[in-house]
Simulated scan of single mutants.
Amino acid sequence: MYTLETALPGDVELCYSIIDDARRFQREHGFIQWTDDYPSIETIRGDIREGKGRVLRADGSIVGYMCVDFSGEPAYQDIRGAWGRNAPYAVIHRMALHRERRGIGAADAAFRLAEELCLGEGVRYIRVDTDPLNARMRHILRKNGFQYRGTILFQGGDRAAFDKVL
């Protein structure tokens, strides 16, 4: 059983190790979405300090990390394409799973739990972006009902933009 919980300051190192392993995984699969400098451990510390960092737990152990931000994303103002809605939204950034949890439904559980979190906050719309070469994440997003909306520029590179109305 999976749960999504607010990350705590003591979780920083483990969350960052999951992010760093995902960075290596990206390179193993032929693309660089996350550079050596981003996301940094300071990025994760900031997420947690601001209450945006979330941990995915399975049987009490942290198996994933994501940022769920209800304050919007300035990079999303300029899209080559069009968002499905002009409404308050949550952004999901920096989603990463422990290597042993990839390919067994943990990402689906994480998105389902993030959606429940959003609904609990009264937000019925989610936006997310990913590297255009990240075929796994694009597949996961589509499988979970997200629609491709175009391209945005984020962290110096083009990103495929998706959204979902809850």
Rank of each mutant, 00 (worst) to 15 (best):
residue 35 T to P: 11
residue 105 G to H: 13
residue 31 F to H: 12
residue 36 D to K: 09
residue 4 L to K: 01
residue 104 I to E: 11
residue 32 I to L: 13
residue 7 A to I: 03
residue 126 I to F: 01
residue 125 Y to D: 10
residue 16 Y to P: 12
residue 53 G to T: 06
residue 124 R to S: 13
residue 92 I to F: 04
residue 114 A to L: 11
residue 126 I to D: 05
residue 51 G to F: 04
residue 94 R to E: 02
residue 54 R to Y: 05
residue 85 R to G: 00
residue 87 A to D: 01
residue 82 A to K: 08
residue 58 A to Q: 11
residue 154 F to L: 15
residue 44 I to K: 00
residue 123 V to H: 04
residue 72 G to V: 03
residue 90 A to S: 13
residue 37 D to M: 07
residue 118 C to Y: 10
residue 158 D to I: 00
residue 103 G to C: 03
residue 123 V to I: 15
residue 145 G to S: 00
residue 43 T to I: 05
residue 64 G to D: 05
residue 91 V to N: 01
residue 32 I to P: 08
residue 55 V to E: 03
residue 13 E to N: 11
residue 166 L to R: 05
residue 119 L to P: 04
residue 11 D to P: 13
residue 27 R to W: 03
residue 45 R to C: 12
residue 165 V to A: 09
residue 157 G to D: 06
residue 147 Q to P: 05
residue 140 I to Y: 05
residue 51 G to M: 06
residue 47 D to E: 05
residue 93 H to S: 15
residue 31 F to R: 10
residue 75 A to V: 11
residue 19 I to N: 04
residue 162 F to P: 04
residue 17 S to R: 15
residue 156 G to R: 11
residue 144 N to D: 09
residue 20 D to G: 08
residue 79 I to D: 08
residue 69 D to Y: 09
residue 147 Q to C: 14
residue 152 I to S: 05
residue 94 R to G: 04
residue 108 D to E: 11
residue 148 Y to D: 08
residue 70 F to W: 03
residue 56 L to E: 03
residue 8 L to A: 14
residue 80 R to T: 13
residue 29 H to E: 00
residue 142 R to K: 14
residue 147 Q to L: 15
residue 4 L to C: 09
residue 9 P to M: 08
residue 65 Y to M: 13
residue 116 E to T: 11
residue 156 G to Y: 10
residue 150 G to A: 09
residue 161 A to H: 08
residue 148 Y to A: 07
residue 62 I to M: 06
residue 47 D to N: 02
residue 85 R to L: 02
residue 116 E to A: 15
residue 41 I to P: 10
residue 128 V to D: 01
residue 22 A to G: 11
residue 64 G to V: 09
residue 49 R to E: 13
residue 85 R to W: 00
residue 63 V to E: 06
residue 13 E to G: 06
residue 61 S to H: 08
residue 55 V to W: 01
residue 22 A to W: 02
residue 41 I to G: 10
residue 113 L to V: 10
residue 128 V to G: 02
residue 164 K to D: 07
residue 129 D to Y: 03
residue 30 G to C: 12
residue 118 C to H: 12
residue 10 G to E: 12
residue 24 R to L: 15
residue 44 I to W: 00
residue 146 F to R: 00
residue 129 D to I: 06
residue 90 A to R: 01
residue 139 H to K: 14
residue 77 Q to E: 15
residue 2 Y to D: 06
residue 96 A to G: 10
residue 62 I to G: 02
residue 131 D to R: 03
residue 109 A to C: 08
residue 158 D to P: 09
residue 42 E to I: 08
residue 135 A to G: 05
residue 54 R to D: 01
residue 106 A to M: 04
residue 69 D to N: 15
residue 67 C to L: 08
